[in-house]
Nucleic acid binder design. Structure first.
Lengths: 216, 216
DNA sequence: TGACATTATGACCACTCGGTCATATAATAT
DNA sequence: ATATTATATGACCGAGTGGTCATAATGTCA
């Protein structure tokens, strides 16, 4: 955690440092990101930086924690109404909300992307000790719930499905980010919904030839 | 491409350099990987290195190209008999072979992992200019083939399915690598087969409750 | 043996890195 | 005005980076 000095800073200055750091860590990985650059971008002296943060790792964990908190806040309203929904609706909501988050918080999304690619194990561990961990078990919980309600077939392997959903979730985000990175979200809302529904259709109905209409 | 001098080297020495470089590039990303370390590991002087390769990028592209060629060689026999198989068999074969490749060529697999996480865009571009590109269109081709044969439902979105397969393919590999990284492959052959089949079952039949047996 | 081309070497260059520290400045309290 | 505390600063450190180059060693002909 940053020193008290950092939080005593005027808001403008503190936010400047934060956004400079976010820019750096969303562009480069832990080892490549440069404290010097962050200092330059935020117009503070090197010595000042080390009065706010004990070291590079301290800053890294702080920034990543901010991103995680923002994401949790964004998803909290969704999760609250989860128990009223079917598995299809739940997954759909998670996918759509994930894309929405990336659209409305591109900086945070880029930080998450970087983090998932991070090479430095100790940096990764330090961040994970601080928060998160829930998304993995979230899917598992959803699956078990749905199974007990008879929403999904008994033959489905929960572990395989969970891995599948996790993988798809991040793939969809990455895909959308690359594809529509610079276009305004509103414009593609329909496309995105259609794409997500196509994915869900595969997951729920399979790809094998089937006769007639959806037998839902 | 390396200089002629490099290929004139005695096999032992040349291979030592190659394996030292592979070790480095499978552990660190492009910017973090160190020429100095590679020289130390392979017992050559810095000056010698720069008589073999024009610069770091030259070495990087060369090493990655070797890995790609090895992977293509490994898959070529499989691809040759593809036209005789159903989509299910094709996908199954790709998944299983992918895991086998990672097991029997862990170094190459690690290089691929690193490459997929690479931050340096110019390094990535240089490698892609040199080879590859096929896996993306391979899935699409398979899907269109299967559709024309009536193997999969008309309602399935080819793009969504292609992305799904790609994503799952790499996820399965990463998952297996993490899970069984240090255990011998033979030991888990059954587990792996079962897991892949669970995934394929979901893809082909969906997860929605269905009555009776597989209606294949 | 001597001439010539090929390969090997490591000190050296300019640069960047994360981190330190003595010192200067500003703010607050007495 | 003085003493005390909190903040700001940038030169400096040791280490590592990719890359260069004059020089030394080796191999190959005549």
């Amino acid at each position: 955690m940053p020193q008290e000095t950092f939080f005593n800073l005027p808001d403008v200055k503190r936010n400047l440092i934060i956004s400079a750091a976010m820019e750096e860590f969303s562009t480069a990985n832990y080892n490549t990101a440069s404290i010097n650059q962050i200092c330059k971008k935020s117009n503070i002296a090197k010595g000042s930086f080390y009065q706010y943060f004990t070291d590079k790792l301290d800053l890294y964990v702080y920034i990543m924690t901010l991103a995680i908190e923002e994401k949790i806040k964004f998803f909290s309203t969704v999760l609250a109404e989860f128990h009223t929904l079917t598995l299809l609706e739940q997954i759909r909501l998670l996918f759509i909300k994930g894309i929405e988050f990336a659209k409305s918080h591109p900086q945070y999304a880029a930080l998450g992307e970087q983090f998932s690619k991070e090479n430095d194990e100790s940096a990764k561990l330090s961040v994970m000790k601080e928060g998160d961990r829930q998304s993995e078990s979230l899917f598992m919980e959803m699956i078990h719930n749905a199974k007990s309600k008879g929403e999904i077939d008994n033959r489905v392997d929960p572990l395989a499905l969970s891995m599948m959903l996790q993988s798809l979730n991040s793939a969809v985000n990455g895909y959308m980010l690359n594809k529509f990175g610079n276009i305004r979200y509103e414009y593609n809302k329909e496309d995105i919904n259609n794409f997500v529904d196509s994915l869900l259709d595969i997951i729920f109905n399979g790809i094998q030839s089937r006769e007639g209409d959806y037998h839902e």
